[in-house]
Amino acid sequence: MADIVNLFEVEPGQTVRLHGNATAEVVSNPRDGVWLFVRYLTSPDDPDQVGAEDMVFAQDVLELVTD
């Protein structure tokens, strides 16, 4: 299991892997440590989500995707 992500340290443009098997690009970070504004990149369980913007909760951010 990956380490817990501290959302304070996440920068716009980075990719995160989410609960529910999706990945998303960080659009902006409100820096409250609890939420991120993201755009879905992949979402095998719900393909309609791809391209949509959403707020994601810290406990749903599983890890930072590194190249």
Binding site: S28, P30, D32, G33, V34, W35, F37, M55, F57, A58
Partner: peptide
């Protein structure tokens, strides 16, 4: 951009709307 409650994480936009 938002007011986030540190207890359970509910989050409100600057117009007061519950968004998170």
């Amino acid at each position: 951009p938002i007011f986030t409650c540190p207890y359970h994480g509910w989050s409100f936009a600057t117009d007061g709307a519950l968004v998170g």
